[in-house]
Design a protein around this nucleic acid. Structure first.
Length: 199
DNA sequence: CTAGGGATATTG
DNA sequence: CAATATCCCTAG
């Protein structure tokens, strides 16, 4: 196999969370981005493929490297139960499905609207018809914070993850960082409601 | 209900 | 073996 089309697209946070924004950014081809997102996110790749229409807006946030078709870490979309081979009562994990870009965007929007902590509101507002539970939202938010280099807890390291298999847009990352800083700096502003329609 | 830690699954 | 990502459990 030739290594001509071996192009890897990483998230900007993977490049260097300390050096923001990263100066070493390569712009991949629209077709590569579309294929990559289609492979990673599946159906969501269709929406992201629209970004390929504008190679100077959102594609600049992605970094191209080699061997980008590596599989994702963590639980894939499988529904196996190693402990219960045939037992339906011992099924602890129901489905390990990775978060999609749309889900992350809705989560960020919910946090920006209600604030970090009101997962019930976000769940009943955006994830009402989803399998995501308030605890899952909190877990995902924590993971996002660590991914963006924002220490959530005392044990959380300041540095971001080394290998991020979830490409995120710069806009989304900036929103996450802003929300994290806002929530960490001023924890008094908690009365946020009666709005949220800002196109 | 929310925050934190543990357990499991996959990849390098 | 180490790291990441999701899900499950427990404490307040």
């Amino acid at each position: 196999m030739e290594a001509a089309d071996e192009v890897q697209i990483w998230a900007p946070i993977l490049a260097d969370p300390l050096d923001w924004p990263p100066s070493s950014v390569t712009i991949p081809l629209p077709s590569q981005v579309e294929e990559y997102f289609s492979y990673v996110y599946g159906l969501d790749g269709m929406e992201i493929s629209k970004l390929a229409q504008q190679p100077e807006d959102d594609l600049g946030d992605l970094i191209v490297k080699q061997n980008w078709w590596r599989r994702l870490r963590g639980p894939r979309k499988r529904r196996i139960f190693p402990w219960g081979s045939g037992c339906m009562n011992s099924h602890r994990r129901k489905n390990n499905e990775h978060w999609t870009h749309e889900e992350v965007k809705k989560l960020v929007k919910g946090v920006k609207t209600y604030g970090a902590g009101r997962w019930t509101m976000v769940k009943n507002r955006y994830f009402s018809s989803s399998v995501r539970d308030p605890a899952h939202l909190k877990d995902k938010w924590r993971n996002l914070l660590r991914a963006c280099g924002v220490p959530c807890t005392s044990k959380t390291k300041e540095k971001a993850q080394k290998t991020m298999f979830r490409p995120l847009d710069t806009e989304l990352i900036q929103q996450i960082q802003g929300l994290a800083i806002d929530s960490a700096s001023t924890s008094k502003m908690k009365k946020r409601r009666g709005k949220g329609t800002t196109s």
